[in-house]
Amino acid sequence: MVSPILNVDSLTFAYPDTPDHLILRNISFSLKPGEALGILGPNGGGKSTLLKILVGLLKPYKGKVGFNGKPVEDFRTQIGYVPQTANLNTVFPLRIIDMIHLQPEKKEKIKDVLNLVGLSGKEEKLYSELSGGEKKRALLSLALIKAPKILILDEPTAGLDTSGIDQLLNLLSRLQKEFQTSVVIVDHNINQVLKHCDQILCLNQTSHWHDEKDYLTKNIIESIYHCEFEHLLIHEKDEISEHHFCASDHKGEKK
């Protein structure tokens, strides 16, 4: 039996200045090599917090996170982290090639990685002049140059069109199959996450659900989001530009 690459055991988190306000409560799951875990949930549900704990930016309040039985500090060279583009400082005129050279651990050849993400021949282009999809792929190349055993992606499909999302998810599937890379995705795109990932973790602050994807029902998603599933899908397809309220939406708010 293949042993998991990632083990999260009874993880609880609260910020030190507000120890009574739990952001995550008693979360446990594991991920095997080549598997993909999708993390879903409303804004403020703890998705990004969990991700920050996984990559070692925050310390758990209680519980354990282990990569192949080791703490994250001893596994950093094996973790590929793709942040949200919004968090990056692009004041410096960084070319794609400069960006990749920022990575201290370079195990793969730059040419191979750029080929893999479809940015071959664009090494000299400035990051700030890339399209949204190209930016995502450039960030992915920065993570992939480490030849990571686990890829952790923060909202990788945000700002991408349908074909961009397909290309990105196909690339992730290829990494999973060919290199047995495990993938953790935090995303708002429920359809794509459900389609692509083997396991789903639904988070809404202290309540969560995690099990085999096939057992995930509409009711569970509704209870996590406090919102009708169809409502979420409408938002996802961008058929309406502004938020609207539905029957079970956000109790106490104006309808």
Partner: peptide, 19 residues
């Protein structure tokens, strides 16, 4: 030099990379 750049470009990414 590359570490300085990485810290400025993406502080969290730099931390995760062990800088």
């Amino acid at each position: 030099f590359k570490k300085w750049l990485y810290v400025i470009y993406d502080e969290e990414g730099a931390l995760v990379s062990g800088i």
